[in-house]
Nucleic acid binder design. Structure first.
Lengths: 247, 247
DNA sequence: ACAAGACCTTGACTGAGATCAAGTGGAAAC
DNA sequence: GTTTCCACTTGATCTCAGTCAAGGTCTTGT
């Protein structure tokens, strides 16, 4: 696959997620060790990377694309419990089986390590363990912010929250400045948005239309979004302007 | 305060949470170092331990009692985002300010460490850092389980989920065996339950009454609960009988 | 060009849970 | 003993989001 070859022989120093990933604080010699056991894997949009309950024999970082973590009840109700963006870590050292499904939301490239060697490396290189703790604490904060969204916000506030998060993440990845209107594409279908927000896709669609009608966002097609006034959007999300989410 | 004196001079070897807390895997010499910088603090039920946004200059473990993590919106809507039981860790190494309120739900004793010395200790004693990573990953799993509850479960399922979690935690702490009816006291008011579940206290009350009427639980007074058939309760919670939450 | 199938929108109706309101029970305070 | 207070219960009504249904739009393949 050509996405694969794009990264196959790259060395870590050139890696686009180098400064944010689990390897961010590694010394050159640690990096060499990682480089020896890493391998790249590509996934197509819609593909399931890991099934809930499966043995996990690798861990890794998202290099490009977006993945989602999803929990499912027996009767089919689903809730997305995490959104993985480039540099986010997948997998759980010290646990055998996956607690939820991991799916590629878009085409995806991951930098993987077999779990055993990675765990061994972790115990000898404190920089990796330390960075992983930091990242896990950040994820925990994000999950708890999301609990407030799920538990207490209205449908309109939920949509505004999601749009503002994606907008800010996009801005931080693309290193854009904050002034002026923000423009980006939603990487999620209406159904995926609904799964994330604990809503139905109809409600998502209606609230997107409502935000558009009220001038909070502009839609060009179904996915291309412009935010003329970020403060207005934050207000609709029920967050104080200073800001809520980082991630 | 007498709760304080109960622990003030105890050494770590006798500590009731020794086997589950952040210090669980420490070697004797590491324990000595911890012992030198630890101090106990007591809080009364209802007291706020840490305010969101405050400087956090200590971290610590819950020794006895229950604390809750709560997020609040400007208009006063609140969502509980975590329940801290004995052995759970409070605070976040590497961060200056608290992201949410921490409140004592019952009378509470904590084993505290000033943040700076603890952070230094963490960088030199891998057992602490490793244990903290484990505990954080467990908390992340719990938070994500809770996202499914908040996002997709009905009021009745939410109540059944909460009751079953408290029942199992109680059983695991008290080392009871699993057979026969489970009996315990709810450590939360109806309002606190509502805050945790993203409901109103009226809905909590109604659903508790409904579960009682249907024989899923027995209530003696407002707080004393008997569960005649755990499998039945799990079924009402929408979890498959094998189990869901650990925590 | 046409068919098929995602993906999305919109409308009408329904229902679970919120809101508003009144009342109960039990423990602490006077 | 009775007043007060707090946690809780119950009822009546309302409303937001879910459900069911129909139709639109765009892409992909034949």
């Amino acid at each position: 696959m050509n996405l694969n070859s794009q990264f196959d022989h790259s060395n870590c120093a050139d890696c686009p997620i180098r400064h944010r990933a689990v390897c961010a604080h590694c010394e050159p010699d640690e990096l060499v060790e990682l480089e020896e056991i890493k391998f790249y894997r590509s996934f197509e949009a819609g593909q399931t990377i890991i099934w809930s309950g499966d043995q996990m024999n690798f861990v890794g970082s998202v290099v490009s694309g977006i993945a989602s973590l999803t929990q499912t009840m027996e009767d089919g109700r689903t809730q997305m419990v995490g959104l993985l963006l480039p540099s986010d870590f997948v997998g759980r050292p010290g646990r055998e089986t996956a607690p939820y499904d991991v799916q590629a939301t878009t085409d995806l490239v991951m930098c993987c390590f077999r779990k055993k060697p990675f765990e061994e490396l972790m115990s000898t290189t404190p920089h990796i363990a330390h960075r992983l703790l930091q990242m896990t604490l950040d994820e925990l904060d994000a999950a708890r912010e999301w609990m407030l969204v799920l538990g207490r916000k209205t449908a309109r506030e939920k949509i505004a929250s999601l749009v503002s998060i994606i907008a800010r993440r996009d801005a931080s990845v693309a290193q854009k400045n904050n002034s002026g209107p923000m423009v980006f594409d939603l990487p999620l279908t209406r159904e995926a948005m609904a799964d994330y927000l604990g809503l139905t896709l109809e409600t998502v669609s209606r609230q997107m239309s409502a935000l558009k009608k009220d001038g909070v966002i502009t839609l060009d097609g179904k996915r291309h979004v412009t935010i003329p006034d970020m403060a207005r959007l934050m207000d609709e999300a029920g967050d104080d302007a200073d800001g809520g989410f980082l991630v």
